[in-house]
Design a protein around this nucleic acid. Structure first.
Length: 210
DNA sequence: GCTAGGATGCTCT
DNA sequence: GAGCATCCTAGCC
């Protein structure tokens, strides 16, 4: 088990989004440790991507995306739920990967308390839900994934059913194949992309790393 | 199982 | 003041 180094994030955003599927997100809170395997991500490419919060340039809200990679971009969605992103690319390039769903691993009882008794498959199957389950919120904005109480690990797991589709819940650039998920995995979010086409891609990059 | 609709507050125009 | 990178509930198969 190895914590992902900053160099992992300092690459093209779609590539990082694809390789994050199968990795483990860990959060250490006052009430204990909770973690889950990433089963769904989306790439947001910054200034060249109309769906990205960074599309119109740096603001108070999105400034962490314009900084170095390996930091957390957390924002409040619809005034209700937090969503959790990992900053990618190099300093000055505002790429980010949205973590959309996890398969719960550790601290499942904590997650049940935070989420309010929910069947396991509904604890983390959406970007707002996983933040609630792992107690990720505004206090985690800008957290350094190498030195803080939230981080990502490679535990050796290699996915074998990685698929690509359009992203969920956006209206501009809605056709781009930038959502990565494990086909058939019961912990993937119920959100359906507006563009239904789905493409299977070989897990080459994961296999090549072994 | 499915769909429709409303909550809710912050950010940027 | 509009527009959300969402979630839950109610109602109906």
């Amino acid at each position: 088990v190895a914590t992902l180094p900053r160099s992992f994030y300092a690459r093209s955003t779609p590539l990082v989004a694809r390789e994050l599927v199968g990795k483990v997100l860990v959060k250490e809170s006052a009430d204990g440790l909770s973690s889950g395997r990433i089963v769904e991500t989306e790439a947001y490419r910054g200034r060249s991507d109309p769906a990205s919060h960074a599309y119109r340039g740096p603001t108070r809200r999105n400034e962490v995306m314009f900084g170095p990679p390996g930091y957390l971009y957390v924002y409040l969605s619809y005034g209700v739920h937090y969503c959790c992103n990992v900053v990618t690319e190099s300093d000055g390039v505002a790429g980010a990967v949205l973590l959309r769903a996890l398969e719960p691993l550790a601290g499942i009882e904590l997650m049940e308390v935070r989420r309010g008794l929910s069947p396991p498959r509904r604890l983390c199957n959406g970007p707002g839900k996983l933040c609630q389950a792992l107690e990720i919120g505004g206090a985690d904005y800008g957290a350094d994934l190498e030195t803080s109480t939230i981080w990502l690990e490679d535990d050796g797991y290699r996915p074998d059913s990685l698929q690509v589709s359009a992203r969920v819940g956006i209206s501009s650039a809605a056709e781009l194949p930038l959502r990565f998920f494990l086909q058939g995995n019961p912990f993937v979010s119920p959100g359906k992309p507006s563009t239904p086409s789905v493409t299977s891609i070989a897990a080459r990059t994961s296999i090549d790393q072994t």
